[in-house]
Amino acid sequence: MADVLTAQAVRDELEGLAGWSGDLAGIARSVELASFPEAIAVVDRVAVVAEEIDHHPDIDIRWRTVTFRCVTHSVGGVTRRDLDLARRIDQIVGASDEI
């Protein structure tokens, strides 16, 4: 089982994750895509990665704005798995900017 990070560790990690914010209860990032279909395409790509690593973000879609929230529900806090998923989400969002 993954270990919950300390408040300081979460703060330190968030410094290296542009656009992400949060605390011990979870980390989140909202992104605005070019169109609703592009927002759905990004969510689809994140879903594939989430299944591969068996770690799933909470996702909220509002037209072109998608909010990703990462927390390890089974341990009640932020773990390394959440930070790794956040980095993967950033890669997907970055790749969509290049399309």
Rank of each mutant, 00 (worst) to 15 (best):
D84A: 14
G19A: 08
G26K: 01
E38S: 05
R88H: 07
I89K: 10
R87K: 15
S30R: 12
H55T: 07
I27E: 00
E51S: 02
C70Q: 12
I40G: 01
R87W: 04
S35M: 08
D84T: 14
A28I: 02
V43L: 01
E32G: 08
D58I: 10
L24W: 00
D60A: 11
E13R: 15
S21D: 08
I89F: 11
D3K: 14
G76D: 10
R88W: 02
V93D: 07
L17E: 08
E38L: 09
S21R: 12
T6L: 00
D84I: 11
V43Q: 06
R69K: 13
S96P: 01
V49T: 04
D84M: 09
A28E: 13
V71K: 05
D58K: 13
E13I: 00
P37G: 08
L83P: 06
D54H: 12
I61T: 10
D54S: 14
V66S: 10
I53Q: 14
L85A: 15
R87N: 06
V4I: 13
A2R: 11
R45E: 14
R81K: 12
F36L: 15
L17T: 05
P57Q: 06
S96A: 15
D58Q: 14
R29K: 15
E51R: 10
D82K: 11
P37W: 09
I89E: 09
R62H: 08
I40P: 01
S74K: 15
V4Q: 06
L24G: 03
C70L: 15
F36V: 13
V4W: 06
V10N: 00
V66A: 12
D3A: 15
I61D: 05
P57E: 05
L14Q: 02
A50Y: 09
D3T: 12
D3I: 05
I27Y: 00
S21M: 03
V42F: 02
E38G: 04
L5K: 00
L85T: 02
L5I: 03
